[in-house]
Nucleic acid binder design. Structure first.
Lengths: 228, 228
DNA sequence: ACTAAGTATATTATATACAAAATACTGTAT
DNA sequence: ATACAGTATTTTGTATATAATATACTTAGT
């Protein structure tokens, strides 16, 4: 068989519902669809030039993921984000990041350690350039790298979901209230612990790292209470 | 307004898709639908006397929950359970049970503590009667009580999902390989720590509790390796 | 018997249709 | 103006229809 053909994947068909699912999901995570905003099937179907059926199926999945709330016979709307919700998510993340980092300390490869090293470097570069969007991206990536190194797919899945649930909000507060310098220091410390394969220390550092974020976030909310 | 009427909830309408979702979900968790078994829309639709539409929507949700795997254009089947999957789930549970128990130590009410006390008592009764089904039920309930006391709804949601993903399997191994006496002791210790509001100790006990289950499970698999 | 091509059947993916409920609108009475 | 009843419109929930793909079933050739 000619080499070229073997590179083509004939099985990359993706159902419409999946495309729509990812599209709506992204729109919610990125804040284009605001919390509380109604999701009307016909509207999306027409905008995308498809029928209601695949849109409905996409919304069902988003509902289970917690990004969308359904009220029978009334329809779906983007899930609201209360302060309690965000604290709840960060509480869980603190624990799961600890676990992921502990597992990563046992299972991470040299290559993966290098990827993390590079990530920290790039984070620092974005910091110098005052590139907030880039900072967020690299911060998200840092945690993804560690989760992947844990070799626990379900853990990756849950963490991704939790991260996405509060991403809309992170964009807001990370911009104004966190200090990237501290973040980069914390990332560096975690990396060092991973490199030394010190699971217990890495675990506690990761937990503290998220707890710090929780505090930053709480500060943000007490200062901006009036805006709500 | 007459008192009687106010007790009636006119808003208890549940869409068919939800009924079907829960029904299929239960069938998978309880093992009536076996891992790998195909889920064909028409079949279920006819059996339940409905159209394919609500069945499809139910399956989409089950897919996101991880109980069902979809292959485009080929259909859905009940997710298989590898040993790795179960270890992964228990790894996460160990961490989350620790978290839930720590939080519960801070937030649990006297009434909830009593419920746990009763639960342990009932567990012991089932043990004397050699009632395996009852044991499993009370064991599940014990953990549910603690999760609820954590006052973190998302944590409850995730833990429920994880629990259900491996429930089919638990039924098998808990019957033959775990020693209820140790379980009751561990539950009792966790209860004592909660009562004393000793979060740190309660957390570590809860983690160990799940790790023990993981070991029991590993033993089960090494002994039954040939059967697979 | 075993394979391969061709055909029939079953199943999924999507679109459309229709009933029932929710929402928006309109006009009337106060 | 405000509240309310009644109607029109929109939207959801479910059923059905249709096209495309996948699976099962022949049957011819070896």
């Amino acid at each position: 068989m000619p080499g070229k053909l073997s590179n083509i994947n004939f099985n990359d068909y993706k159902p419409l519902r999946e495309v729509i699912f990812e599209s709506l999901r992204q729109a919610i995570i990125m804040g284009e669809l605001k919390p509380g905003e109604r999701l009307m099937e016909i509207q999306f179907a027409e905008k995308m030039g498809v029928s209601r059926t695949p849109v409905r199926e996409a919304i069902r999945k988003l509902e289970l993921e917690g990004l969308v709330v359904m009220i029978p016979r009334k329809g779906a709307h983007v899930a609201e984000l209360s302060v309690k919700d965000i604290i709840d998510v960060l509480e869980i993340r603190s624990s799961l990041d600890g676990l992921a980092t502990k597992l990563a300390a046992e299972r991470i490869t040299e290559e993966e350690l290098n990827n993390i090293k590079n990530n920290i470097q790039q984070f620092a570069q974005n910091m110098e350039k005052n590139n907030v969007q880039g900072l967020i991206k690299k911060d998200v990536e840092f945690h993804e790298l560690i989760y992947k190194a844990s070799r626990n797919e379900k853990l990756v899945h849950i963490a991704t979901n939790l991260k996405d649930q509060i991403h809309r909000f992170r964009v807001v507060y990370l911009k104004d209230y966190s200090s990237p310098k501290e973040l980069v220091k914390e990332h560096q410390d975690i990396y060092d612990a991973l490199k030394k394969r010190d699971g217990i220390y890495a675990e506690s550092l990761a937990g503290i790292h998220i707890n710090n974020q929780q505090e930053t976030m709480t500060t943000y909310f007490t200062k901006n209470k009036n805006k709500r």
